[in-house]
């Protein structure tokens, strides 16, 4: 089977545009959900009344439902109660709704991994609870959380493949349209796989390297 190289060259710009959309969405999702995760995990750490319960509920809802259904609800369901969002906004909100809970869990387990005697040690030199979090807990928790934060980033990047379902011209829809119009199935699919390989592989390699470094540079009591 020989590939049609002219077709590949012609459709490359379409894939590049779609890759850019993916990167944009993934960046928004990763950054915003990390901020949310950090804030929510702190609320859980401080055991703030009501708010903690709300966050636990949100985490369970978000982690135990598929992104596709979340997106359909945002895109087709919410306009019925007067909330109209663009496709891009829906995709970004859906990804953040999903990622926020994963990042909350990552930060939370990092915070929990800081030993209680470290907290006592901080208290014993008169630190306030805010100073304790700022100078003792977060720096250590963040280092512990790096592998799971990275894994979540990759997860979110891959989950962007679903936004095509709400009519965004993403990589999946570019491939689908090209197959439908040109019947160049093999070329379209190979480009699709390659596009994700180019997007995800570097991040995955960086994460493997980071994981190894974190493990080597373990602090030691």
């Amino acid at each position: 089977m020989s590939l049609d190289w002219t077709f590949i060259a012609d459709s490359l710009p379409l894939y590049l545009d779609a890759m850019w959309l993916t990167v944009e969405l993934a960046l928004i999702a990763i950054i915003v959900s990390m901020i949310i995760g950090l804030l929510f995990s702190l609320v859980l750490f401080y055991r703030i009344k009501y708010l903690s319960g709300f966050i636990v509920g949100y985490v369970e809802l978000s982690r135990n439902t598929p992104l596709l259904v979340q997106l359909f609800f945002l895109y087709y369901g919410l306009p019925k109660i007067g909330l109209h969002l663009s496709e891009f906004d829906c995709a970004a909100i859906g990804l953040v709704f999903l990622g926020g809970s994963y990042m909350t869990e990552a930060f939370r387990s990092g915070i929990e991994a800081v030993s209680s005697s470290q907290l006592e040690s901080g208290l014993s030199i008169g630190l306030s609870k805010v100073q304790l979090v700022r100078y003792v807990i977060l720096p250590q928790a963040f280092a512990i959380s790096i592998p799971s934060l990275g894994a979540n980033a990759i997860f979110l990047l891959k989950e962007t493949s679903i936004v095509g379902a709400i009519a965004l011209m993403d990589l999946m829809n570019v491939a689908k349209d090209l197959i439908g119009m040109s019947y160049k199935t093999a070329e379209s699919l190979i480009l699709l796989v390659l596009a994700y390989l180019v997007l995800v592989l570097p991040l995955s390699l960086v994460l493997t390297w980071l994981e190894r470094r974190v493990r080597h540079a373990e602090f030691g009591g």
Binding site: S117, Q118, S121, S124, I125, G126, L127, P139, F219, G221
Partner: peptide, 19 residues
């Protein structure tokens, strides 16, 4: 917070901040 600045404590496992 205030009291602990006057009553210091040293722990069995040192508990220096590793970072």
């Amino acid at each position: 917070r205030e009291i602990r600045q006057h009553i210091g404590m040293v722990f069995q496992n040192y508990e220096l901040f590793p970072h």
